[in-house]
Design a protein around this nucleic acid. Sequence first.
DNA 1: CCAAAACCTGCAAAGTTGCGCAGGCTTGAA
DNA 2: TTCAAGCCTGCGCAACTTTGCAGGTTTTGG
Lengths: 121, 121
Amino acid sequence: MPSRLIVSRDLAELLKLLAHSDRLRLIEELRAGEKDVSGLAVALELPATRVSQHLSLLRAHRLVEERRHGRSHFYHLTNPRLADWILDALPFVDIRTRLDDNDHIDTARALWTAADSRSKH
Amino acid sequence: MPSRLIVSRDLAELLKLLAHSDRLRLIEELRAGEKDVSGLAVALELPATRVSQHLSLLRAHRLVEERRHGRSHFYHLTNPRLADWILDALPFVDIRTRLDDNDHIDTARALWTAADSRSKH
DNA sequence: CCAAAACCTGCAAAGTTGCGCAGGCTTGAA
DNA sequence: TTCAAGCCTGCGCAACTTTGCAGGTTTTGG
């Protein structure tokens, strides 16, 4: 029964794809909706080339989809539930050494789930 | 607010830790309960050295814990919910090209959730 | 048509990971 | 005490990733 092995390989591939802080931030940024490359670059304070490279990787694996309008390329999540699933991992993240309050998980989740990417720089 | 950045880094680190098919299989194998290194090596058909190396990595990040008895080292999951969370990712895995039935997700989940690691070789 | 904006891709340097292998430690049995 | 089982760690090589940079394509505006 090699199926189990195959599944574990595919799962590992998915996780590897997500295992980069830039890409995680991109995905969580796209949770709010469609956004173009330069918009993402500004929001995450990353060079546009890097954003483009990460998006191309995510696109190759169908995690995001592209829509072109004018000279802008707008990206959106193929399956927004993925972003929810990622946030479900926060309880397993060891952040107690860096945030000094107790309810760090709620804090962390709030940082992402709230529509706060626009409310503050 | 660098917190969001920090969280994404920690999350990425966790995902990187899980992004290896051997380690995924180890974690799912330990879902059933404690097991020693050679037991895991036999169950997953992997060289014991490799199993040991993976476990040492998981241990360093507190995903598993060790209990020594005699000359055997028994490992168990620090937080079994992690294994559940991993299985929740199966709907996002692209396995349609390799399993030819339709309900591949149920199939895949059954492969892991059932106590079938012993029922078949 | 021409130029600039917005992206994409190829490439090479630097860093990281995975793997087997050799060697070492600890425990239990003879 | 001596041996072997069971496990761990260090080392080195191969393979992969990340990143900036240079150069390319498409679209819009003049």
